[in-house]
Design a protein around this nucleic acid. Structure first.
Lengths: 197, 197
DNA sequence: CCTACCGATCGGTAGG
DNA sequence: CCTACCGATCGGTAGG
């Protein structure tokens, strides 16, 4: 009743958190259930009282993140802000998620390939759809002359990967505060995109 | 004598090529030597007449790519072009390498984590150094007022990751020709960075 | 949540 | 380049 499903509430939550951390560092395949169990503080066999399989852990992480981003996209789409502001909101959300849920975001972004069918196809479709919705925003912005002409799908690819660059930053220098980084990225990305004629 | 070491010249070359392809698709850990052998068309045990270990394959791929990019950086640094032109050359080189050596570039970029010591540290150092050299270029450009003020290391991170976005493009739509994509990226990245006051 | 254990598969070697 | 095989480790289950 009181447990927040995805977070650290229960033992299952702890397992998911530790798994995300290990999947990020070593990769899904290189992480053994015995390693994970040790990190959690129980025997490998005991993990199976909380989760059904290694696959299920990956599924939980990937789809929790997918839902988070999809729901945010719903909100942005139904808001009345102008297009640049919408794009800025999405970029800020991505950056914030990388900071708040670093391990999970990373796993969902890089380890989803190890999902098995039918989850693999399902996830890929959600990923494609998200990018199309994002690209549609660019096209609206171009049409409204808020953004200068560019190929929208290419712009989305560049933007999403550029944001992923924070991953390296996150590891190498926590010194710069999150807000400073956010503004820095926005300057480079948004101001580079905004039409100035 | 006549064999081009890294390419498909010898059986070893073929093994490296197939390995790069499989490491990219499934990841290093999820690729077994038996799978690789099957792809090459020999028995698993026979692989060891050409390579010493699975690790050695990863090392060959990663350091061949590291050398390629380092040598290009040497050339760019010693050229007399202005800073924006140098940065543009580097971006074009990255894009070209992703197109020409897609599998190897991808593996060197994403699977190097599975390198063992001392190769892991060596590779990480080379990676850091390359980024520092790239960042130094940005700092020069800012000093010469060719580029507007930005945090140079952040700009490098964004740029390198943005270029990595072509990976998705590469898979999803070979329709757009390479040159068109290159110009598209340069427009978004360079023109967004160039000082216009 | 543990002990005990399963069959499968792993990277790699011996010997020819 | 192959057959035959090694010890280690894998994800997961039985049974309590």
């Amino acid at each position: 009743m009181a447990k927040t499903p995805g977070k650290k509430a229960s033992k299952k939550g702890l397992i998911l958190l530790k798994a995300a951390s290990m999947f990020r560092q070593r990769g899904f395949s290189a992480t053994s259930m015995r390693d994970l169990a040790e990190e959690v503080g129980i025997e490998a066999a005991s993990l199976y009282n909380h989760i059904r399989s290694k696959q299920e852990i990956l599924e939980a992480i990937c789809f929790e993140m997918a839902n988070l981003f999809n729901e945010h996209m719903d909100q942005v789409e139904s808001s009345s802000a102008n297009t640049i502001a919408k794009i800025e909101r999405i970029i800020r959300f991505h950056i914030q998620q990388i900071i708040d849920n670093y391990e999970q975001v990373f796993v969902a972004d890089r380890e989803w390939r190890h999902l098995e069918e039918p989850y693999l196809s399902n996830f890929q479709t959600q990923r494609r759809t998200y990018r199309k919705r994002f690209a549609a925003l660019f096209e609206q912005g171009i049409e409204k002359k808020e953004i200068r002409y560019i190929d929208a799908p290419t712009a989305v690819l560049i933007l999403l990967h550029a944001i992923g660059g924070i991953e390296s930053w996150h590891r190498s220098r926590k010194k710069i505060n999150a807000r400073e980084l956010e503004e820095n990225m926005l300057t480079i990305l948004i101001d580079g995109l905004r039409k100035n004629d």
